[in-house]
């Protein structure tokens, strides 16, 4: 369950990162298709990052003296990561739903007070999650996976932005 939850979180985060990477680069009024495309691009890059992490995990387990123990160690680190990520993700999703559903002024309140600051602290939250996952283990593979997973999540937005949205449409 923990690996699946982490994978889903990474993919959903990739969708949003793709959306953010494209914002501020298209001044058209009607741009739903543009935003959808950007989100898919983010998902694609996020999926590539998640696949790289999965490959690293698979290799690490394959070469381990005790694959079962290493797998348990990795799952345990993933659990610690979720302790940080899930509450943050829950609050972000709640804020997003509120922004979309609330009347104009209240949704502005949510944007200014929640969604803006959340975007700002997101890299720090991801970094803390990586650190919390790593420090609970002495296995260097866990450290490496935590570092690569954190980096792969954080690089989606800049990568998508640089590749497709460095200049206004």
């Amino acid at each position: 369950m923990i690996p699946i939850t982490l994978g889903v979180l990474a993919l959903v985060d990739g969708l949003f990162a793709g959306f953010r990477a494209a914002t501020g680069r298209n001044a058209r009024i009607r741009k739903d298709a543009y935003n959808r495309r950007a989100a898919w691009r983010g998902l694609g890059v996020g999926a590539a990052g998640a696949a790289a992490v999965g490959l690293l995990v698979a290799i690490g387990i394959a070469v381990a003296a005790d694959p079962g123990q290493r797998y348990d160690e990795l799952v345990s680190a993933g659990g610690r990561m979720l302790l940080v990520l899930l509450p943050f993700a829950a609050v972000v999703v709640l804020s997003l739903i509120s922004y979309l559903l609330l009347p104009m002024r209240e949704s502005t309140f949510v944007m200014v007070l929640a969604l803006g600051p959340f975007t700002l602290v997101r890299p720090a939250v991801a970094a803390v999650a990586g650190i919390v996952a790593a420090v609970g283990s002495t296995d260097r593979l866990v450290w490496l996976v935590a570092a690569v997973a954190t980096a792969s999540v954080l690089m989606v937005e800049p990568a998508v932005h640089r590749r497709w949205y460095s200049e206004p449409v």
Binding site: T23, G24, R25, N26, A27, M104, S107, T108, M111, E167, P168
Partner: peptide, 23 residues
């Protein structure tokens, strides 16, 4: 300036400025 104003439009969109004016 075009790049900065294109970004700035996002602020207008998120603060619902067109709706506020229409109101």
């Amino acid at each position: 300036l075009v790049r900065a104003h294109t970004e700035l439009q996002r602020l207008g969109e998120e603060l619902h400025m067109a709706q506020r004016f229409a109101e």
